[in-house]
Structure formats: structure tokens, C-alpha cells
Design a protein around this nucleic acid. Structure first.
Lengths: 334, 334
DNA sequence: ATGGTTAACTGGAACGATCCAAAAAATTTT
DNA sequence: AAAATTTTTTGGATCGTTCCAGTTAACCAT
């Protein structure tokens, strides 16, 4: 910066003012400085600037599974809002690994992020997140709440969505309904699985614990789970999946056995990612307005950045969208 | 840090040594310092550290369309390698917008990234990237090369893949074959479309420019393009898409007209994303070993970080994988 | 001309780390 | 026990920026 100053024949303070687009410098001087900046190919050092109090314009977005298209959709909503507000979101992937997550979080706080949206990895302790809040990083949880202290969060109505989906399967005549994916130590799984159990209870169907197959919320889990429940003495005839990606895995598993969802087995997902509409057969699933959820999370962070730190738990409404995989329609759906 | 020093009864220099895990400090002292760090809830300020020369451990990954699952697969490969090497990748999305890309790039260089992998947005000028290289950021281009100076890059063999796919359609008897997606100012599109034209020429099929429908490489593009070529005086009977996502859009477009790929229209994609296997019908597409490509890109950045700055252009081999959407099989494929 | 205002610029202290040369403490050698 | 050596610790300069309190320049009204 001193080089710039020398090159433009001013002081480093003036250069600083130009960089901050201060109205205190004469247009003529500003042009001279900008010319020097251009000429010397100077890059601003944000780290040095942050040293003197100012917060950076990056916000962190920490997600647990980049391979799940759901998170891409969430990110799109988040980015829309932050970009309009002049913040640049940086995304990091934790692949559902708490250790990796804490490395990522440390790196982000070292770089002095202005805010954070996080889908906590399995095994995250509330204290891990609380530490962030302690040092003044506005944080909101997305998709997964955390037990204990009050954090801001945005989540879909997991319980209601799962309940409706299960009711739909029951209405179609199924009684052996499985639940695939997620772990019982994740709140989201509890909520969704809870909705599933509530629907069973309401229909006087006894809850069979062996029909709940836990596992990571990915394709492989669905692929394995379907084999499992099909090989039981009294096989399941339907399943609700923790999310669409798990359901995609089930689709593979069925195909591998020469079976088809909708015809031989009733399958319902959760999230309604864009791909769900085009699977074979199209997937019946619980629609979540993912983009809007992301926007909401971003707005919440923005609100906190601007000083309003009251936590807010936002729960978005969900809808069951019936396609062919549950066997309710003949496969035609716009 | 001075607080820590005081609390532990040592000097700030000693604290610094502890933070760097230097072997010069006595174990006893180290423990005292670590205890103080824990007690005061101190967070390391990377920005201040970078001020004195050292480079940070974050690497940037700039992609143009997060919603394309292809990039998630690429990111997974990249992350695997970087994580093993102790670097933390931060991802930013440019949504194919050169202006936004330059903001992202500026922000990343301000934060002093150790390296960069970038899928340049449409309209990126080589100079934009060259500026990065100038200030010493090891950069490799992924998926899209750039005209002009020698950058390192990793790309699939676009020309060969497109040519093989087109030859396959020709072998199935098609003569009115369209090409959907991408813009003629993108090198990747030129390569893929060039392979398509080469196959036509080899089969003595005259090239009809009106069968090449340009557009952004997303769902909407495919959805619109299929309507277009179906409404022509002499409609197309097959299409090669710039990528799978465009093909997914075509699937929607066909469905909307009550038509089905494989039966009424032959469709081939490019990339072979995980979803391609489970669309309705399963998508014939050009398989790219995306994860390996990502790993290769990451290794290249690592090599450059370690001082070997020779550019390397890596082209990975590709394979046509025939599923049902081109009409060649009856739909059964493992 | 003279003093009073305002506009435009500037020097130096801070921010939180690293690194070097040198001091202090501990250890070994004579 | 003193000298020599090694191990451990330390003060101060430094990195590139911002900010404050001045300083200088420019303008205005008397």
C-alpha cells in the first residue's frame, strides 16, 4: 500500500480512504490512486484490515453432505439473499464428520466470518456451536436443530411431513411399513420417525422396531435397507425414507432384484429434490420449500449481524406430493 | 495472545511457539499455556499470522453451477485429496456469472488462499485468471479450459465422448440428430459439439446448424430445446445433450408432451452423474470419472504449491454407457 | 490583509501474530 | 566452582491495514 502511495504521490492514509470509497478525497486524487492500484496489480489484504476491528464480508455455510442435491438447493436460496446484501458465502463440506466439522469451523472463525449457517454433522455437541456464538458469530442451524440451548434454526415440519406420508401409505392399505435412514441420535430423524410412529399409532398398527433401519442418509443406506426388509420373515410392503437420497438408493435396490417401486413396493421420500420428479418411477415424497428455507436462514443471519440477536426457530410447512413410487397413481403426474 | 501470556506467566513469544507446536518449549510450559488458552477461550487470528508471510491452509474451489450434481461429485474428489494434505477447501458458486466470479475471486485472494481450482464461468477472460497466477496462487482449471496462455487444467475428453455418443445414435439409424445446451463461446461446448459434428461428417450426414440449440447448461435449456426441435418442419429424432442436467430437462419436456425417451426420441447425456442411472428411463450418457478428475486437479494444485509450477493439461478418458433413453436396449441394465 | 471555516490530506499508533537476535536458565564440562 | 555449552525464554521490530488527531491548503467573509 505504501508503494501505491508513493506511486500516486500521496500518503498511505489517503490510499486507505480511497479503498474505502470515502467521500473525503478529491475525485482527481482518487483517480490517481486507482491508476496506481491498477498499475501495480495490488491486492487488498483483508486479514490486515480485519486486524483493526472490521468484520469481513464472508459468511460461512457448513453442510454435512454436498452430494445430496438437497443442500445445493438450500445453498441457492442462501446465496441469493447474501449476495444481495453484499456478503459472499463460502461453503464447506463436513461429510457428516464431527471432527472435520470442527476443523472447518476453526478455520472459518480464524478467518473472521461475519455469520454462519450450519447443518450440524452427526455427533455435534451443542458446546461446539455455542463456542462460535460466544465469540460473536451470528449462527443459525439449518435442517437440524440441536438439543439444549436456544439457537436460531430453520427446519421443515419433519413430524407433520412424515406423519402425512405415513398416513398416505396406510390409506393405500399397507400395514408393514418400514422407515429407512438417519440415526436415532439425530433430532431430525427423531422428528421424522416420530411422525411415522404417530401415524401408525393413530391407525392402531403396532410399531415394530425392527422395521426402522438406521443408517447414514445416503444412497447406500437405502440400497442396503430395502434388501433387509424384503428378506424378513414378514417382509415390509412399503417404506418411508429419511430423505429422497435414501429413497434413490432403495430404487437401485429394488431394480437389482427385478422389482419396481409403485408396483411391487410402495416408496415415499422426503425433501422433494428436483430429481425426484424424474426418477423411475417418479418419487412420491414430502415437498420442502428448500430455497425459501435457505432464504429464511440467510435473513436470520443478516438480522443477527445487524444486532438483533434474539434466537428464532422457524418451522416451514410441508406437503405430500404423490407421484408413482407409492403405487397410488398409474404414473402420470404433471 | 498477550492475555494468554500474562495468564500463563510467560511472554507472548512463548505462546506463539506453543501455537506452532515448536519443540523448543518445555512440556511443562506448553501445558501451562494450553491451559490458559482453554481457560480464556482464545481464537487464533489467522489474518494476523498471514501478515508475516505464511500462507493459509485454505484452498478455493470456484464452480459455476452448484445445482449441477456433477460439481458435487467433482468436489468430493477434490476434498478427499486436500483434506489428506491438511488443506481445507472452501467452495463458492458463481452461477455462471463472470462479475460474481470476480467478486468471489477477489474475496478469496484477499483471504490469501493457498491454491485454487476453478470452473470458469462463461465470459471469463484469461486475464482474470492470469491475475491470480501473477500474485502467486497456484491455479488449475477444471472442466473448462481457457483460450490463450498455458494454464493447468483437467478435462474429460469432450471431443471423443461426444463423437462416440453421436456415432452410437447414427448406428441406431438416426439422421436428424440435435445438439442441446452450452454456448458456442465456451470451449467445452466447442469440443463436445465438435465431436458431434465430426461423427456426422464421418457418416456423411450434412450438418444442419439449426439443430444445434444453444443455452445455459441447465434443466430449463433442455426443456425448451426439445420443444423447439420437435416443432421443426423436419423434426429431430435424437439428441446429444451438453450434459446430463440438460438431458434431465429434455426428459421433462418429453413427458410434458406425453412422449418418452427411448421410445419416441433417442436421448444421450454427458457426464454420467449418479442420478442418470435412475431417471425414467435411465439415461444413456458419456461416463466421466468425475471423482478421479477432481483428485487429479487437487494433486496438481498441491504440486504447484510445492514449487513445481509447470502447467499440465490433463485429459481423462471417457466411455459411452448405454442405458434405455437412446432406445438401444429394452431398459434393463445393471 | 486577517482571521475563520471548511476541505483535503498526513503521520503515527494500534491490531495480533511471527521471527530474530540476544538474554536467562539449566546443564554439562573442565 | 568457574567456564562452556545447551536449552528455554524473551523483547522488539515487522507485516498491511484503519483510525485518530493533527497539519496544510483552499476558500470565504469581513
Amino acid at each position: 500500500m505504501i508503494d501505491i502511495a508513493r506511486h500516486a504521490g500521496v500518503s498511505k492514509s489517503t490510499v486507505s480512504l480511497v479503498l474505502q470509497a470515502s467521500p473525503l478525497v478529491k475525485a482527481e486524487t482518487r483517480d490517481k490512486v486507482n491508476a496506481a492500484i491498477e498499475a501495480l496489480g495490488y491486492v487488498y489484504n483483508r486479514g490486515a484490515a480485519n486486524l483493526r476491528g472490521s468484520r469481513s464480508n464472508i459468511v460461512g455455510m457448513v453442510i454435512n453432505d454436498l452430494a445430496n442435491p438437497f443442500f445445493a438447493e438450500l445453498a441457492v436460496g442462501i446465496e441469493r439473499v447474501f449476495h444481495a446484501a453484499g456478503y459472499i458465502p463460502f461453503i464447506a463440506n463436513t461429510i457428516e464428520n464431527a471432527k472435520r466439522q470442527s476443523e472447518v469451523l476453526r478455520s472459518m472463525s480464524e478467518h473472521d466470518i461475519a455469520g454462519l449457517i450450519i447443518c450440524p454433522a452427526r455427533g455435534t455437541r451443542p458446546a461446539d456451536i455455542e463456542a462460535l456464538a460466544q465469540i460473536g458469530v451470528p449462527t443459525v442451524l439449518a435442517m437440524r436443530r440441536l438439543a439444549g440451548p436456544k439457537f436460531s434454526s430453520v427446519t421443515p415440519d419433519n413430524l407433520r411431513g412424515a406423519r402425512r406420508a405415513t398416513e398416505h401409505l396406510i390409506a393405500l392399505g399397507h400395514r408393514r411399513i418400514a422407515f429407512f435412514g438417519g440415526y436415532s441420535d439425530m433430532i431430525a430423524q427423531n422428528d421424522r420417525c416420530g411422525g411415522y410412529q404417530a401415524a401408525l399409532a393413530a391407525a392402531d398398527i403396532p410399531f415394530d422396531r425392527s422395521l426402522v433401519i438406521e443408517g447414514p442418509p445416503n444412497r447406500d443406506c437405502g440400497l442396503n435397507a430395502i434388501g433387509h426388509v424384503l428378506d424378513m420373515a414378514e417382509p415390509a410392503t412399503a417404506a418411508l425414507c429419511f430423505n429422497d437420497v435414501v429413497a434413490f438408493g432403495v430404487l437401485s435396490g429394488l431394480e437389482r432384484r427385478g422389482l419396481a417401486a409403485g408396483r411391487d413396493f410402495a416408496l415415499v421420500g422426503f425433501d422433494d429434490v428436483a430429481e425426484a420428479r424424474h426418477t423411475n418411477p417418479p418419487l412420491t415424497t414430502v415437498h420442502v420449500d428448500t430455497g425459501a428455507l435457505g432464504e429464511r436462514a440467510a435473513h436470520q443471519v443478516l438480522r443477527m449481524i445487524h444486532g438483533d440477536t434474539r434466537p428464532e426457530e422457524f418451522v416451514s410447512d410441508v406437503d405430500l406430493v404423490v407421484r408413482a413410487s407409492c403405487g397410488a397413481t398409474s404414473g402420470r403426474e404433471a
